[in-house]
Simulated scan of single mutants.
Amino acid sequence: MKRNRRQGVAAAVALLLVLLWLPTAEAAKDKPEMRNLAAGIGYTWSEQPEPSYGDTGNKLTDGKYGTTVFSDPAWAGHLRKSTRSVIFDLGEKKSIGRIQAHFLQDSSVGIAYPNTVSMYVSNDGAQWGNLAHIPSREVRWADVPASTQDYVWDGSKDGLGQHHPNATMAYAQYVKVTFTTDVFVFVDEIEIWGTDGKGNKTKQVTADRLAYQEPGRATGGMRDLVLLNNGNGSGSWTKDALMPYISYVNQQGEPQDWLFDGVLFQSVLSTSGKDFTKGTATLSDWTAYLDRIFAEQGDLQQLNEAVIEAGVKLGDRGHKVKVVLMMPNPGDTLTDFGDVDGDGMTENFNSAVIGADAAYANKQKAVTWWIQQIKQRWKEEKYGKLKLNGIYWGSKASA
């Protein structure tokens, strides 16, 4: 009797498990597998690749991946100028769960990974909602053998962000992929994985609202900021040369009203010819730049005197101009930057030599030193008509 009862209980449990399993099995059966929706379709470039590394119209969707040899015909190459975009029309709205783009790096011939690859979707091909801005995972311009890298947005891992926190797929007809171009950028394939129709966790992505930055807390109160180059052999700024930027002047050069309320000083090249934006300038270059702009009659003092003079002539002696100073790019290649922390060892920024973590820590030392130097020197000089408003990270850096 007990044995029959146990057998009955076992049978009931088995039946319950089957019943629980059936909906899951049916759901898995009904759920379509993702496929590459871009396979074999056409697309539109914002700007055609270089003729020597051109695109016949199907390189990005023909399923042919390039080797690490840049002359492989599978690659399409773009040279400098503006950020490139490529737009795909899927024909109708579909569920998009993964977008990936494949790039080449060969620093020996000037080909670098994009600093950033961005991915968007749209319902009309005009208004776009961003899915991701993806930085390079690999060191750019590293002196290592040629390699390739995928930039990937994966909805199951990355989601739709602010658009729909719980969604894993975007419902859209158009896909746009953009990438920055430093020197040469080579791309061979872009894949858009998804399914036809609209799935359970598929949501439509709202188009981004595009607008100019409004003055306020995010801008430090600045309304109009002018960038003034104070390097590249251009010499130092004088009070008279600065006057037409901070004030509207007449033909005689006399101030009539205030103009830019913010001034950004930036230099691309050091006096020794090293590049502040690409990470070739060393500690001595960084120091020389600071010495020059903070000098007794340097750019900052000249600006301060220009504001004083304009304030007197305009009857507004209390007016101040906000100042933003540049942040040099430490870069990824220097092995002998200089000793910024006094430990007797030069800072090495080359991750291929000392590893990514150590290189990153050394770059942090250099950046911290720069910020501390600016704050300290600014405090010592006491520019009465200037306000230090920020530090500008203008380079395409990986630090």
Rank of each mutant, 00 (worst) to 15 (best):
Q7C: 07
G8H: 02
A10M: 11
L15N: 03
L15P: 01
V18Y: 07
L20E: 10
A25N: 08
N36K: 03
L37D: 00
S46Y: 08
E47A: 12
Q48G: 06
G54M: 06
G57D: 05
G66M: 02
T67H: 03
T67L: 07
S71C: 03
A74G: 07
A76C: 14
R80W: 12
K81I: 07
T83S: 12
I87Y: 00
G97V: 05
R98E: 12
A101Q: 01
D106R: 06
G110V: 01
P114Y: 00
N115Y: 12
V117N: 01
M119C: 10
V121W: 00
G125I: 12
A126Q: 14
Q127M: 12
G129E: 10
N130Y: 02
S136K: 04
W141M: 10
W141K: 10
V144Q: 13
A146S: 15
S147H: 14
T148A: 10
Q149N: 13
Y151G: 02
K157F: 10
G161R: 08
G161M: 10
Q162D: 13
A167T: 06
A167G: 08
T168L: 03
A172Y: 02
Y174L: 06
V175H: 01
V175T: 04
T178M: 08
T178S: 13
F179Y: 14
D182T: 11
V183M: 12
V185G: 00
D188Y: 02
I192W: 01
I192S: 01
N200E: 14
K203Y: 13
A207Q: 07
G216F: 00
R217I: 15
T219L: 05
T219K: 02
T219E: 06
V226K: 13
L228N: 07
N232L: 04
S234R: 15
G235D: 08
G235S: 10
W237V: 04
Y248F: 09
Q251N: 14
Q251A: 10
G253S: 10
E254R: 11
D257E: 12
Q266E: 14
K274T: 13
F276S: 04
F276Q: 04
T277G: 07
G279P: 01
W286Q: 05
T287L: 14
Y289Q: 08
I293E: 03
A295G: 10
L303D: 05
N304S: 13
V307G: 02
G311Y: 02
L325M: 11
M327R: 09
P330C: 07
G331M: 04
G331R: 05
T333I: 09
T333H: 09
D339T: 04
D339I: 05
D341V: 12
D341E: 09
D341H: 08
G342C: 06
D343W: 07
T346S: 15
N348A: 09
N348D: 15
N348V: 06
G355C: 06
A359E: 01
A366K: 03
A366N: 03
V367R: 11
I371K: 15
Q372L: 13
R377A: 08
W378F: 09
W378L: 07
W378K: 09
K379C: 02
G384S: 14
N389D: 11
I391E: 02
W393I: 12
S395R: 05
K396W: 14
